[in-house]
Write a protein that binds this DNA or RNA. Structure first.
Length: 872
RNA sequence: GGGGAAUUAGCUCAGUUGGCUAGAGCGUUUGGCUGGCAGCCAAGAGGUCAUCGGUUCGAGCCCGAUAUUCUCCA
């Protein structure tokens, strides 16, 4: 079976068992501070297990794209060096939400592995939970019983709490699990050591392939376990590993999941896979990382310099680094593997095929950027070697600077140093790294006080803001937060009209009133699904009931901009095409910012067209149509624009302005009818990354202000030009005239200066074979300097002293011909310094030219006479 | 969120305790030579040294702020 068939067989099998086949959730997670990427199949069902939301299907199965870059068993720097770790992988899983339990889960897992996939039964072992005294848990005899019905007893092993009891976190749903392991060793090896002795012993060929979790408890804060009324099944099977088992390979990278990339790399480099340790590692690294990066970009996460985007950049750069060092690539190459990926995964993951062009461009651009970074680093490194040629040791501080400031990887520094017979002070490097980490941690620390619980509340804050701007609310809890010397307070309410920042729309401001007491809310944010109102000051004592009022003007303008964003999105798709997809947005009361995929600069005509469409829609005064609780499927039927893969089971809110024009999934606040927006103007358009463009625009009063300011500006220009018929032409003429006048003036000035130079040169006195000129002139320092240089070109054997005054400030310029400097050991700098004493000033310069400035113009005569004495 | 850096000609970059009327290569223009592969030679144009402010006799260089970009850490 090839990997495509293996994946499909899994889905078909559970479909035949009445499972709903869900889409893979996005690999990139938004709005969860604890998790940046989906790292397990169950992530998207977390709320169902927690009891926060109901499920629409009792049985679900899917393949889930996952990303792991850190954790106890998965350090990014290790991936590729062995044959089984990955950053991005697929997790096959089936779930029961309060429906079937251990019996079916076990029976179906066995049926799929042995009958559908045809794995040899005598290579399989299963483990069940062996009980735990501290938790007062008995062994999972139930699971044992069901297993015994299908496999011989000597293949069932009891496992520890560490291996066979699964918990989501410190608290929450948990339960025993049962794992299926497979022994993939040769016959010989199997005869020597029994497979059952190697289960869970870290042997690379005796591995777990499927974990069946039986969620039957809830762990409380006290540590106590409580039985759950509804029991769930949560299973996970690593797809890449399954392929290895089914295809009889010794390594995940030998399966057809990875081989196509490796073969392509081999073809590109002329290096056979298996011909060298490090070239093999590099090929594994590149093929693994390509998959991770491509999926992340498809989910809208671009390589960038912070957070999730930075993780993606690091992964991609690691791939480039290995390619650069071990495969000798000097040009962007990773993106060239993308067509291979589309061929292999495009069907199961349509987002990859649909966005191939974008992904390829983004990767290629990032590759080019990084190769530039590398060449800058190499340059710096070479400069360092040249400057420190005596020591043969690269200072740790410098190695760290290369890494920290120029992004130059430390292993490349070591490699290049070794090639020159140098060493790198790694301790110094580590010390720099440690100092950096300490600094960051100190800066990141925020002190949060304990929550003051005012009233107990079960559910999350109810949001009223779609319908009202004011409400009676009750305080649930509040606390003080300090960071960097600033103190503020967070307040949680039972219900609120305040919109918390999300989906690009900023949070509401407003006030909370209780009698005479007013709390000013300066922002509203979401923290772990908790709506927190932020205030700089709170009263003592704290009232428990408030009348909440949102700042309506700000909200109104924000709504203008948010609705305009939707209209803009739709208009862009009309004008540019359906490849336009939202890649980010920001909406506040002043303006809107919209990032979208598109490959070229918008022409002036395109921008005009987009603006015209949006403004026409505004004038049509289209009434908002809102569906607050809609199923995903229904929303899609309506043609709602959304990124690939929303979370399964979510009810979504759909906003449309003319169903045939703009229909989007959106939680934000909008105008009731588009006429409120008034006017829409695009103020800037530009690129922010390869294939991504950004438009900034304004609406309503802001747009009016903008247009008026422009008109006023134009009027002012016209008035200055005496209101010509054709303003542009008039300005062009003016510029032409100006240019020709400037040239004439230049010539005239040169002429004049030439005359002055002639005059001055004529005043030269022969003193001891030297042409001495000492003159007082009315000009500023810049002109005197120019004059001195001009005279120097005219007169040889020159010793020139100019005393100049401008705006009451005296200065001295001394110029001496180079031959005199040499022959007579004269130094203009020293001379000017002594002369400057007469005008109460100071100065200096080079041997042939120097300047000084002072306070006493009356001393200039003395300066000239003293200068003459120097030659006499 | 915090640290470090960069910004000089159309492009890639030099510019050394502040002394500079700011340079190189590539590109470009003009002229000449030349049967070709990055042709050769000569001459020229092209810079508010990111912006604003400060220190100084003098700032591309030092100091402060701003903007943009890069980079590391969280």
């Amino acid at each position: 079976m090839n990997s495509i068939q293996i994946r499909q067989a899994f889905l078909d099998f559970f479909s035949s068992k009445q499972h709903f086949i869900a889409n893979s959730a996005p690999m990139v997670i938004k709005n969860d501070p604890t998790l940046m990427f989906t790292n397990a199949g169950m992530n998207q069902f977390k709320d169902i297990f927690l009891g926060n939301s109901p499920t629409t299907h009792l049985r679900v199965a899917n393949t889930q794209k996952c990303l792991r870059v850190s954790g106890k068993h998965n350090d990014l720097e290790e991936v590729g060096h062995d044959t089984y770790h990955h950053t991005m992988f697929e997790m096959l899983g089936n779930w029961s939400f309060g429906d079937y339990f251990k019996k079916e889960a076990i029976a179906w897992a066995w049926e799929l592995l042995t009958e559908v996939y045809g794995l040899e039964k005598d290579r399989l072992y299963v483990t069940v939970f062996g009980g735990d005294k501290a938790d007062g848990l008995d062994p999972d005899n139930e699971a044992f019983k069901f297993w015994k019905e299908i496999v011989s007893e000597d293949r069932i092993l009891y496992g520890s709490k560490k291996d066979n009891f699964w918990e989501m976190g410190e608290t929450g749903p948990c339960g025993p699990c049962s794992e299926i392991h497979i022994d993939l060793r040769d016959e010989n090896e199997r005869r020597e050591v029994a497979g059952k002795d190697l289960v869970n012993q870290g042997h690379p060929q005796v591995v777990e392939i499927w974990n069946l979790v039986f969620i039957q408890f809830n762990r409380l804060n006290s540590g106590e376990l409580k039985s759950l009324p509804a029991k769930h099944v949560d299973t996970g099977m690593g797809f890449e590993r399954l392929c290895m088992a089914l295809q009889g390979k010794k390594s995940n990278y030998d399966t057809d999941v990875f081989q196509p990339y490796i073969q392509k790399l081999s073809e590109m480099t002329g290096i056979a896979y298996g011909s060298g340790k490090m070239t093999d590692v590099a090929m594994r690294v590149v093929s693994d990382h390509l998959r991770a990066v491509a999926f992340a970009i498809a989910d809208g996460e671009l390589p960038s310099n912070n957070k999730a985007g930075y993780v993606i950049r690091r992964i991609l750069r690691r791939a480039i680094r290995y390619g650069y060092t071990f495969l000798e690539f000097r040009e962007p190459f990773v993106h060239k593997l993308l067509p291979v990926m589309v061929e292999n995964m495009g069907k199961a993951f349509p987002e990859i095929a649909a966005q191939q062009d974008l992904i390829s461009r983004v990767i290629a651009e990032e590759e080019a950027t990084f190769l530039r970074t590398l060449s800058v680093g190499i340059h710096k490194f070479e400069q360092y070697l040249a400057a420190h040629s005596h020591q043969k040791l690269v200072d740790g501080q410098f190695a760290f600077e290369l890494f920290d400031t120029y992004g130059f990887p430390i292993d490349l520094t070591r490699l290049m140093a070794r090639e020159q017979g140098w060493d790198v002070d790694m301790e110094g490097f580590a010390a720099g790294m440690e100092a950096q980490k300490t600094r960051s941690r100190a800066a990141a620390s925020i002190e949060t006080g304990d929550w003051v619980e005012v009233k107990s509340a079960a559910a999350e804050t109810r949001f009223l803001g779609y319908d009202q701007m004011e409400a009676e609310v009750e305080l649930i809890k509040y606390r003080q937060v300090s960071s960097k010397g600033k103190t503020y307070y967070q307040l949680v309410l039972d219900q609120t009209p305040f919109y918390a920042e999300s989906g690009g729309q900023v949070g509401d401001r407003g006030v909370l009133q209780s009698g005479e007491v007013t709390i000013e809310v300066i922002d509203t944010q979401k923290e772990n699904n908790l709506v927190v109102h932020i205030a700089e000051r709170i009263p003592h004592p704290m009232p428990s009931r408030f009348f909440a009022r949102v700042d309506e003007a700000k909200r109104q303008q924000t709504a203008n901009n948010h609705t305009a964003t939707h209209l803009l999105h739709a208009a862009l798709r009309m004008v540019l095409g359906p490849h336009v997809q939202q890649k980010g947005s920001l909406v506040n009361e002043e303006r809107l910012r919209f990032d979208f995929s598109h490959f070229a600069k918008l022409t002036a005509e395109e921008i005009e067209k987009v603006e015209a469409i949006v403004n026409a829609r505004i004038r049509e005064n289209i009434i908002q149509e809102e569906h607050r609780e809609m199923d995903m499927a229904e929303a899609q039927k309506m043609g709602a624009m959304a990124l690939f893969g929303e979370k399964y089971g979510d009810k979504v809110r759909v906003i449309s302005f003319d169903k045939n024009f703009s229909t989007e999934l959106c939680g934000g606040t909008h105008v009731h009818s588009t006429g409120q927006i008034g006017l829409f103007r695009i103020v800037s358009e530009g690129a922010i990354a390869a294939g991504i463009r950004r438009i900034e625009a304004i609406t309503g009063a802001e747009a009016e202000k903008y247009v008026n300011a422009r008109l006023k500006e134009l009027e002012a220009v016209r008035a200055l030009l005496r209101a010509p018929k054709d303003t542009v032409h008039a300005v062009e003429q003016l510029l032409e005239q100006n240019e020709s006048l400037r040239k004439k003036l230049d010539a005239a000035q040169k002429d004049q200066a030439g005359q002055l130079v002639e005059e001055m040169a004529a005043k030269a006195e022969k003193l001891d074979g030297v042409n001495f000129i000492g003159q007082l002139v009315e000009m500023d320092a810049k002109m005197a300097k120019d004059l001195a240089y001009a005279i120097k070109n005219k007169v040889n054997n020159l010793f020139l002293v100019l005393g100049h005054v401008a705006e009451g400030k005296p200065g001295i310029v001394v110029m001496i011909s180079e031959n005199l400097v040499k022959e007579r050991k004269l130094h203009a700098g020293n001379i000017v310094r002594s002369l400057a004493a007469h005008i109460q000033g100071g100065g200096g310069g080079q041997p042939f030219f120097a300047t000084a400035g002072g306070k006493n113009p009356a001393g200039l005569d003395k300066v000239i006479s003293e200068a003459r004495k120097l030659l006499a």
